[in-house]
Design a protein around this nucleic acid. Sequence first.
DNA 1: ACTGGCTCCTGAGGGC
DNA 2: TGCCCTCAGGAGCCAG
Length: 271
Amino acid sequence: MPELPEVETTRRGIAPHLLGATIAALEIRQPRLRWPVPTQLPETLPGQVIRAVRRRGKYLLLGTDAGTLILHLGMSGSLRLTPPDSPWRKHDHFALRLTTGLGLRYHDPRRFGCLLWTETAPEQHPLLAALGPEPLEPAFTGGYLHAHARGRRMAVKSFLMDSRIVVGIGNIYANEALFRAGIAPNRPAGRISLRRYEHLAQAVRTVLAASINQGGTTLRDFVDAAGNPGYFRQTLQVYGRAGEPCPVCGTGIRVQRLGQRATYWCPQCQR
DNA sequence: ACTGGCTCCTGAGGGC
DNA sequence: TGCCCTCAGGAGCCAG
């Protein structure tokens, strides 16, 4: 679920409360996430001061002097700030408790997320080492996409969702960016011109930034650190709109599976 | 080197 | 009401 805008919304919500705070405890209810929560963490963390709250792709990184917590929200995860002694709800799997009493509660029905720990530079962690550029930073350009797509037959939508190419773009925003760029999702990545990739890179930047401004997209589970949903869903042009008229030309929006993911597009506007 | 397919997990919704 | 099937925002891992 959470793609870059939702993770960034979460980061912005928790950062002011976590920066400079001291960890009192890590309470674990369910250590069996995508990978087991490291068993030594509850002994390692107390007393550590949170020095940084960063995001890399869809990963959240909480930096301390002893190491860095690596957090991923998977498909259905969310983080909420909670008052002291807040009751545990079903699917609350762990909580970071600060010395102020404030809690950071992780909720994830599907348990595809993770909580890991690294004592070296997090960029060198196996999960992060091969990640592509951030789509909202200058290294992400049409020229970059065009160069990396050379000779590749994979559908451009799958290419755009490959975190080794560019991070943060999941199924919703891949659909939306391709619609805005006028590119058919199943077009082979290597058969798209530089000019069209420049449009695509711009569409990616525009749609991600617009969604961040709306607090992300909530389909079912996502809430920000205060427990509020995001409001970008109403701005989605094609995702989840099979059969509805294209907002540009009125042609019916189509849906088809592509790479095991629901793919929405306008057959008239996207070529 | 690429590619597509499978997998983890719970819950919601539709058809019967 | 209940059962069974399909699908859902991710992405690592594997075989071919």
